[in-house]
Every structure is written in C-alpha cells, then in structure tokens.
Amino acid sequence: MLRSEVNLGSAVTDLQHQMASSDTVCIVGSNSTDVAPADTDASVLQAPAGLISYEPDELMISLFAGTSIADVNIELQRANQRIVVPDWGTIGGAIATRRNGLRESHHLTLPNNVLRCTVIAADGSLYQGGGQVVKNVSGFDLVKLVVGSWGLLGLIVEVTMRTEPIPQVSQWLQSVDPTASDQVNHLYKPAVITHVNEATFVLLEGNEQDVNQEISRLNGFALCDMPKLDRSLQMDRLHHLSHDMPHSIERSIRKQFDPSNKLNKHIATQRDLLT
C-alpha cells in the first residue's frame, strides 16, 4: 500500500534543483508542528512520501521522509512491529524536531533508532550519514547531527529506521499519590515515566504476566489511556536554550552547512543562528 508507484528518485533530483536555485527555502513536513514561516517569498520544499524497503527480519525500514508516521505504523503492524515515534506528522518532521513525545524522559530513543539519513544540502548536493545496519561507527556521525536540526542543515529526503517488535501488552497507569514517583522508580525498566501536572504516568510494556505482576506492586495507581501530549512544548524548547559556548559551535556548523542562510530562516532567526 505504501510502496510508491512513481519514480521518486527523480523527485529527489527535482528537489535538488529547486534547492540549488532558491534563495530562501522553507522546509515542511505535514505542518503538524505549526512552525509558521515568516518569509512569504521562500520556496516551500517537502520530501516525497513512500516506502523504499521494509525487512521485518532485519528490524529495519527505509522510507522517503515525507511518509506519514500513521502510514508507516500500519505497514509495520502487519509484521507485528512498530517505530516508537508519536503517531502524527511525517517521519522527516519527527526526526528534524527530535520528537520523542512521551518518551521524552528517554530522549536518546529517537536518535538511536535512526540508522541512516540522506539529506539535500543548502547547495542542492546530497549527503548521507549512517548505513543500513544496526551498528555503525564509520566516520563522523552526521545522523546524530541531523536528528533535531529543525531543517537548518538541509532537507531530509530518505531515512532508515530501526523497528521493534510490538510488546505483548502495553498498559498506562496514573496516580496522584505523593509516593507515586518513588514507587515507579522501583519498577524494572518501565517503558515511560512522565509527569503531567500533579499526576505521575507510567507505561509498562512486555510479557503479560510480568506486567500484571508489576502492576500488583503499585499502590494507588489506576489503569488509564495514554496522556495527551502538548504539541506546543516542541517549539517552546527553541526559546529556552542557552547562548553560551555550544551556541557558537552551532553557529559554526550552520556557517559550514548553510553559508548563505537559505534554510528555514524563521527558525534560524529565533535561535539566533543566522551567520
């Protein structure tokens, strides 16, 4: 269903030309992050969508970055697998904003699950980081750099992600008990712990008997659905970053990758990354 009919290779070449010939570029996924572009003359570029290859036995999927995460997960469910990214927007958008959603407490989850990225640079050339294997230390890690780069280092066009088996059960619980935090700390590797207002939420995943046993050790917790995510928090982060030394490294990276300040000017401005 996801498999693309048209030749998306030529779509990538077209995007490269557009990138090379534009003075300002605004990169969009499906606009789920609500990052309003300030610049109305900017060319709006969007990665193509579609499956490149899926190998369930290798726990690995390659996609064009414009593919919607909901579509990816439908495809993966057939093989009883998933990717752990909140179920909205495109895969490219999730990677560009390092969207971990409720796994925020495990902020390393997403970067570790992106195995390879192909990016159209500001000058229209293609660069690739990573590889199609699960373990790789060949050269400097452009993948880690691109994950969370907010479109400031190029347009992500293709990605390879690690997939994982869907656990037998997944159960959310919540509590407002003052001992709740302490209790969840004694659980063995809960999938997620998160705090929303006064409530502690915990997600337990795995073997059914194990999960039931863990639940029976908790006092004052009730079963519940996944808590609602505040999407605006994503943008908030941009304002809360420091402006000291790491910021000057970020500026040098920008100078190297986008010397003419072509990409996502509105974000570069907010983060003071125009060079």
């Binding site: 880690k144 750099l145 970053l241 970020e250």
Partner: peptide, 26 residues
C-alpha cells in the same frame, strides 16, 4: 575542552543541535 582551549558542556538541554551525539564517536 575544545581545540580552542575553551571548556563547554554538551547536553540535550543547552543546544538545538545534538552536539553531544555528534561528539560521541568523533
């Protein structure tokens, strides 16, 4: 300690880009 001689902290909170991730394996 950067090659310039300056010291800085790289973590998930103080920069937009994942400089921590880029440094690991460098």
């Amino acid at each position: 300690v950067l090659p310039s001689g300056e010291v800085c902290i790289l973590d998930a909170e103080n920069s937009l880009f994942d400089l921590r991730g880029a440094f690991v394996g460098s």
